[in-house]
Design a protein around this nucleic acid. Structure first.
Lengths: 207, 207, 207, 207
DNA sequence: CATGAATGAGAATTCATTCAT
DNA sequence: GATGAATGAATTCTCATTCAT
């Protein structure tokens, strides 16, 4: 269940998922709307947005929101998982590329580019404590696996030095994303990414 | 650094600073206590801590706290400014070093090491919007200047490549700090920093 | 008593009762199920149980529940009426007994014994205000009549003093039931009942 | 602490109680107001009254109410304890009476009479679960002790039969009070009490 | 000046009831 | 008729900020 990233990434609206009986058409639509509204609002105003506001933007009552996500935190989770799954799918897609180095670094660029749009979500993850991590763990592991695959290929091709690991790469990218979203940031995420990528490349110097 | 009340108070309320009349001795002590308590609590529990709790830990009434910091946000600011000033001083101290490269990278290590202890404060800054930045700007500019000085020297010595700027360096370090504080992070701040530093070094490859 | 659905449904919705058209067989069955589930849950968890929970335990949708009982309060009522009717039948059954005193006091024991199992329902009645009483009045009057009959016979036989009335007896028993259900109650309902029964017997003293 | 019933019964407003530093004058007044408003509203409308309403009736903000009673349940408790303490004091006052039987039964009458005015509070106790009982336990034990004292004297004087205990008496009175408050009750609390009291008197018959 | 009591606008969550499927 | 999704008013509780003592 939910272990197939592709399915999960179908994201906001695929019918017949998850072992539960498929949701009714309207329920499905509402769920998607809530997810969409929440994502937008979290991105725009941070995770502080009241649930009422999310519900209103989604055009549903709070009750409906709570029917789908019994807790505000569950809502974070859902969005988070969906996004992670999206990235995982992206990584898998790039796996067959002819130029592994380009595939790898291109993936990182994607990650950073997309994340800049979603201010604060990752911070929300950070703040939400342990339970949270547990639930998102599955999705995260899938992403790690995919990134590691991509990384290993690039390393074999000599485009990335051999002493870095998938998790380290993800941490670095996460850092770049989070930092780039901070207001008043002097450097763009691209500038930062460039340095990080250089650090990841094979180098003769400095080691 | 923050353990010397006098130093702490220097921020924006020390005696005979700032055009305001100098504070009475006890007022000064209270201000320092609040700052210290707030720093500790923000670090330990995040910026969500209620002001009452801070006041209690500081051993003063809320009223007193509010006399010194008319807003919770102003309190963040004060702490922030204080810390930035500390880093600035650190940078200046290293400026005369005989080994500029080591001075520069050592400074970055300090930055990361200390920041890891202060969970959530930087995120708070990030979340607090524009007003916030304005007030802290002065302190930030001072830090940028100091870092830039340190950087330039290192660049002249050939230890850092010439196309990076002080602000970019700060952004990268900020990224590393923020990311490292996220729970469940796979990589340590040191691992991340290592990659970033490699990216900052002079390299023949990849460019 | 409440274990036979047919009996349960007799309350105010059985086939061809009440001037309404007789319910379809499945409707009848659903009504009975709801009643049964509600009785069990009210007894176990108090009247606070959400209707959804009742519906679920009954194996029907909330909508169905509401078709039969247009209000949660109506559901209380129905259960109440059903139980009162059960007691009434019990009283009537005992009316022909050879030992009127024993019949009377035995009936009271039954009342108390059964009520102890139904925590909170009687309290709910109490709290639900006037409307409520109006509807249940019919059932109550029937019970009063039956009890009065039983009482009169016992009084004629000299087993109960002559200055008490049916309603007073019912109030006393009600008191015992309600009180016995209160948690942390020091005395058992039986102990209380014993005193009350002594008070009801013919006595030379104290009057 | 709080073990002296008289002090406790000073009830809503005595200064310098409880080992805590005495409350400020306004705080004390507000606490008393809240208690008074809550008692009135619980009596009039049951324990369902929203806290906002209580606060409004008391003429304070909700925040103030919560400062004094950190939970709605704590508010029940406070009222409850106060009332129990009042009864305890009543019992103690009667202890020196020349006519023990009259003292005992008179006390019971008082209990019933006063309780009729306070609808629902005792039910609230019942519903509030275990924690609740724990806190009120001290007050309850004091009452039990006082009632037992009164009872024993009356038993020695031959006015009450010897096989009843203080807790049983309290349960019986509790039953009468609760029952009498139920709307649509046919019998008055006095009628019920009369029977109960007869049951408590020394009797030759029926045993 | 210091204190901490008072304030009240939210915030998250629940649940009786309605209504589209 | 049955279902369960949708609704949103109501509820309890929190916490930044003000103000009487």
């Amino acid at each position: 269940m939910a272990s197939n990233p592709t399915t999960v990434a179908t994201g906001s609206g695929g019918p017949a998922v998850d072992g539960q009986r498929p949701l009714r058409a309207d329920a499905l639509r509402n769920r998607a709307r809530v997810l969409q509204a929440a994502e937008a609002l979290f991105a725009a105003e941070g995770v502080g947005v009241p649930v009422d506001v999310i519900a209103e933007k989604a055009g549903v009552g709070v009750g409906t929101l709570y029917r789908h996500f019994p807790t505000k935190e569950k809502l974070y989770e859902a969005i988070l998982i969906e996004r992670i799954a999206g990235f995982t799918a992206d990584a898998r897609r790039r796996l067959g590329s002819e130029n592994p180095g380009q595939a790898f670094f291109g993936f990182l660029e994607d990650l950073v580019a997309q994340s800049s749009l979603k201010r604060d979500l990752i911070n929300a993850m950070a703040g939400a404590g342990v339970e949270f991590e547990v639930v998102a763990a599955e999705a995260k592991l899938a992403l790690q696996a995919a990134v590691t695959d991509l990384l290993v290929v690039a390393q074999r091709a000599g485009s990335v030095r051999s002493d870095v690991t998938g998790p380290l790469v993800l941490s670095l990218i996460g850092a770049t994303c989070v930092a780039a979203d901070r207001p008043g940031q002097a450097a763009s995420s691209n500038e930062m990414l460039a340095v990080v990528c250089d650090g990841l490349r094979v180098t003769g110097a400095g080691r």
